[in-house]
Design a protein around this nucleic acid. Structure first.
Lengths: 198, 198
DNA sequence: TGTACATCAGTGAACGCGCGTTCACTGATGTAC
DNA sequence: TGTACATCAGTGAACGCGCGTTCACTGATGTAC
């Protein structure tokens, strides 16, 4: 036991503080409306600290976005590629989205609001891109006859919108309360689009 | 016939050029990533011209957004308050959205991408806010028994997402071709969410 | 009709502020011997 | 064990560039008489 540990109530991990502050601010205001000074103030650090870990604010925003989306994408991938029925996997995916939203609304807001904020040549790895994963899941479901729809990609876009838009509206207060209470209704909505004879 | 008209092939209406350039750039890059110099260059004007009509770039972005959304909202209002059946009004609304998208993709991209870019105390007039109009249309439909859904607002959010997300995905090239060919499929999708026994 | 004046969109150079970034420095931690 | 040195996250003041904005000016159009 070291006297140092007793004095330093919180050890210096300012990188965590910076990233948390950045995600919070980016999600609240949009990537383009946050300055390095805002982040430093919110994180309680010097502005220069950012540059020990990222080459600039743009690089930081994109790195955080990519990291969070791909981490979430890895969880989506696991759910969508389980051996359960298509209907069960849809329900579990909606549950994953909405539980994540309720559990870490700040990060979800950051992901949702930043989606169209980056140069189009910056790409999420397709293996962990949640939207692409849904697209290929539905494509596979149609091929195997579990889903029926005249236009696979359109069905995927509709399903994605049906799941994400209630989350957006929850952020903007058009929809109240925890999202997770809507899991069943939204999952059923997805099946109504995808399955001809429910 | 005036010699002047012959020389001045295009009369000086630089305001139109400025607004068109601004909408194009805002829609392509996002409101926060466009500078007054970009707009002036794209419009072929001096930077100062902007300030003859708007108090600044932020005011211009919001004014254009509000104007375009409310103009579109007025058309949505007309369709949704017609005396036709609920199903017909839904189909015509989807048609309105997608025909508008195909007809003026630049403006639609501006509207879609700018939605969450402004300070939350800037509000579209509720009378002409397309999303609010859809919310109250669905609420009315449930009250009158034309629609059945356990949670009206959730149903509205799902329907809005189901209509707009294919448009977003068309902009980002995840979905190909003109949107209007999807009018029937999307309208049918909406009814599947809203009507218990289709 | 012509003349004098007002109005106003647009010009282009200039300006100052705030932004992202840099840099010499600090102090804590790890490592070699 | 102690000493010397390397590493590296973080500091805070400084910097320069690019941004949004301003302003004196232009020139075209409208209007009064």
């Amino acid at each position: 036991v070291n006297i140092h540990l007793l004095i330093m109530a919180r050890p210096i991990h300012k990188l965590k503080d910076i990233e948390a502050a950045a995600i919070r601010l980016f999600g609240a205001r949009g990537v383009g409306r946050v300055t390095t000074k805002d982040i430093a103030r919110e994180a309680g650090t010097a502005e220069g600290a950012l540059y020990r870990h990222y080459s600039g604010i743009e690089d930081m925003a994109w790195s955080l976005y990519k990291r969070e989306v791909e981490a979430f994408g890895a969880r989506v991938k696991k759910v969508l590629s389980s051996p359960k029925s298509y209907a069960a996997r849809i329900r579990e995916s909606v549950s994953l989205f909405y539980e994540f939203f309720d559990h870490d609304r700040v990060t979800f807001a950051f992901i949702l609001l930043s989606e169209h904020q980056f140069s189009p040549n910056r790409k999420i790895s397709p293996r962990f891109n949640p939207e692409l994963l849904v697209y290929s899941f539905i494509q596979q479901g149609v091929k195997e006859g579990a889903f029926q729809h005249p236009h696979r990609d359109l069905a995927a876009a509709m399903v994605i919108g049906m799941v994400l838009t209630p989350a957006m509206h929850c952020l903007t207060r058009k929809l109240k309360g925890p999202l997770s209470r809507h899991i069943n209704d939204v999952a059923e909505g997805c099946l109504r689009i995808l399955v001809a004879d429910l």
